[in-house]
C-alpha cells in the first residue's frame, strides 16, 4: 500500500467510524451552541454590547469546543490497540497522524463553521463580518486540531488527562484567538483585514507542516 493510499485509508476509516457514532459529532456542536447561549444570560442582552463582543465570544467558544472534542482524537484507537498498529506500520507515523487529524477536523471542526453564522446572527454580529468569521473559522479551527493533537498525544496514556490537556493546549491557542477575533472585529468596522488573514494562513501552514512530528513522537512515547 502506498503512502498516499494509507493516508486516505486512515481518513476514510476515521470518517466511517465517526458516522457510526454520531453523538460524537453532535456533542461539541451542542456545547458550542450552549456556551454561546450562556453569554447573553450572563452579561445581559444589550444588543450593542453583544455585537461588540460577539467575535470574541464565538471564538472563545469555538476554542473550548475544539478542546473538548480533542479527547476523541486518539482515545478509542488507544484503548482498542489500533493506534499501536498504526504506529507499527511501515509508513511514517507523522503522515498517518496527519490523516487522523484531518478526519477529526472534518468531524468536529467543520460543523462549527456550519452553525456559526446562525449564532453570529443571534449575537447581532454585523452582516459584513459573518463571511470573515467563516473565513477565520475555516483557517483557524484546523490549527486548533493540529496543535491540540500534540497535547492529546502527550496525555492519551493518562487516566485523568482532561485538566492537564487544557493547561497544555490553551496557551498555545492564544495567537489564533487574537488574530481571528481581531479580524472579525475589524471587518465589523469596515477596516482592512489582509494582515490578520495572511498571518492566520501562515500559522495554518506552519502547524500543518510542523505539528504532526511532535504528535507522532508523543504518541510513540505514550505507547511505550
Amino acid at each position: 500500500m502506498s503512502l498516499t493510499n494509507a493516508f486516505f485509508a486512515i481518513i476514510r476509516r476515521d470518517l466511517v467510524l465517526a458516522l457510526r457514532r454520531r453523538s460524537e459529532i453532535a456533542n461539541p456542536l451542542l456545547f458550542f451552541v450552549l456556551v454561546i447561549t450562556l453569554f447573553p444570560l450572563g452579561i445581559g442582552a444589550q444588543p450593542q454590547l453583544l455585537s461588540a463582543i460577539a467575535p470574541g465570544i464565538i471564538w472563545v467558544s469555538a476554542l473550548l469546543a475544539a478542546m473538548l472534542s480533542l479527547d476523541s482524537l486518539f482515545r478509542s484507537d488507544f484503548d482498542d490497540g489500533s493506534l499501536e498498529q498504526i504506529l507499527l506500520s511501515p509508513h511514517p507515523a507523522s503522515v498517518l497522524v496527519l490523516g487522523k487529524i484531518i478526519a477529526h477536523w472534518l468531524v468536529t471542526g467543520l460543523p462549527l463553521l456550519i452553525i456559526a453564522p446562525l449564532l453570529a446572527i443571534f449575537l447581532g454580529l454585523p452582516s459584513q463580518s459573518i463571511g470573515i468569521l467563516l473565513l477565520t473559522l475555516l483557517l483557524g479551527t484546523p490549527v486548533l486540531s493540529l496543535i491540540g493533537a500534540i497535547g492529546v498525544a502527550l496525555t492519551v496514556g493518562l487516566r485523568r488527562g482532561g485538566m492537564i490537556l487544557s493547561l497544555l493546549v490553551l496557551p498555545l491557542y492564544v495567537p489564533v484567538l487574537i488574530f481571528a477575533s481581531n479580524a472579525v472585529d475589524m471587518a465589523g468596522s469596515g477596516l482592512p483585514i489582509h494582515a490578520q488573514i495572511n498571518i492566520l494562513i501562515a500559522i495554518l501552514l506552519l502547524t500543518l507542516v510542523l505539528a504532526p512530528w511532535p504528535t507522532a513522537a508523543a504518541l510513540k512515547m505514550s505507547m511505550s
Binding site: 500534540i150 496514556g157 495567537p175 488574530f179 511532535p214 513522537a217 512515547m221
Partner: peptide, 24 residues
C-alpha cells in the same frame, strides 16, 4: 516517560513563544 513528554512540550513551546509574543 514524563521527561520525554515534558521535553516535547517544551520544544513546542519554544516554537510558539515568539509567535505568542508577537501576536500579543
Amino acid at each position: 516517560m514524563a521527561s520525554k513528554a515534558v521535553a516535547i512540550l517544551a520544544l513546542v513551546g519554544v516554537v510558539n513563544i515568539p509567535i505568542i509574543h508577537y501576536s500579543v
